[in-house]
Amino acid sequence: MKEHLWEVQAAKSFCKMKKDWLSHERIHLSFVKHSGKPECKQELVIEGAIKLAGTDGAVNLSYLILTGRLRKIAEMKKKEAAEKQQRYVDPLFTSMGGTVASRSADGASCTFREFAVLCGTASEYVLRMLTCAGEQTSTGGIQPVSGAKRESIFVPISAGDLVCFAKAIEFAYQEYMTMVCSAPGYTGENKDAPQDQAPAGEAEPQAPAPAEHPRMSCIVWETGGITDGLPQAIKHDPQHIVGVIQNMTRTLLKEKRLVANADDYNATVAFINSQTPGAVTIHYAGKENPQTQAALCIKIAEFI
């Protein structure tokens, strides 16, 4: 079985996206640097990851790419670099992580890693994975050790490659949520909710079992920061799902000053009420600063 979801080859490097870390809510990215043809002798390997959730997570990166937002960020960063006469353009997207000492192969080495999407010079974009010795922070994160030697692998890619990368993230996320929803005992509903019970000594009335009908299983995630990018899984009726969307929209307005696109919102409500499996997105823009953007993504499937 094919273990990777996506790959791209450059003259002296390549990157593969793998799904073997999805159970840890991570997308595995394997970067390899080599000497080039004909020998292609391996020179450096960095096994890194992007977490799924959060503004620095893979789901948000996919959204930025597929909506064209990352392209606009690139234009802005290039303009800023030119105005400041910077030699290099600042990264368009970064996601930091690593391995704490207790989980390392030798049980003692802490490693810092950083994934980034950069503007290219000979190519439209570049994927970069950086690694160096790390140390844990007081909050449990990992930061580079001061003065540590840093090693990086760069993989130049086209805009088309980047879109394929984003679509592969979408596929990985769908596989992850399928895995979550298929877990034993999963219902998507509140397990702590009180259950109606018959009074002691009184038998519950027996009624014919109703015919089973598909119920809507809805997965919602947003990039505005109100849930830290974590997906909200719901298994309920359309009216309940619309209520969830309304509440999240109110919260985005109140806490983040983000306003929903009216056409997107109305189309989403109609889509949910149609009970049709599929996906839809509501886009939001800042009330005071329209350049501030976010999205609310809704994916619907049917479960018996």
Rank of each mutant, 00 (worst) to 15 (best):
D237N: 10
R128Y: 04
S109I: 04
S95V: 02
K256P: 10
F171G: 01
F271H: 14
T121K: 04
F165M: 06
E7F: 05
T276W: 08
D106A: 02
P208G: 09
T249E: 05
L92S: 08
I245F: 04
L253I: 02
S13G: 02
I298V: 15
Y186H: 15
Q86M: 14
R215V: 09
I46K: 06
T227W: 05
Q293V: 04
Q174H: 11
I298C: 11
C181V: 13
Q206V: 15
E124I: 08
R71F: 01
P277N: 07
G243V: 01
S158V: 00
L118C: 08
P238C: 10
M96W: 06
L22V: 00
Y284V: 04
V145N: 02
E151L: 07
Y88S: 10
G141S: 07
S23G: 09
R71A: 03
A11E: 15
Q232L: 05
A294T: 12
T251W: 10
Q174G: 11
T139A: 11
R26Y: 15
M177L: 13
G201Q: 12
G278K: 01
P238G: 08
Q85P: 14
A101T: 13
A108H: 06
Q275Y: 05
S182H: 03
F31Q: 01
E135H: 03
G141E: 03
Q136I: 00
A260I: 11
A233Y: 13
S158L: 00
D264A: 03
Y265S: 02
F31T: 01
G97I: 03
E75Y: 07
Q206H: 11
A168D: 09
Q246H: 11
A262P: 08
K78T: 00
C119D: 06
E83G: 03
S152F: 01
M96D: 12
R250V: 11
S104C: 03
A203E: 09
F14H: 15
Q85G: 14
K77S: 07
V8P: 08
T94W: 10
D196A: 12
E222F: 09
A200N: 12
M17N: 06
Y176G: 06
Q174M: 05
H213C: 05
L92H: 10
N266W: 15
N289F: 12
L296K: 13
M96I: 13
C15D: 02
K33C: 07
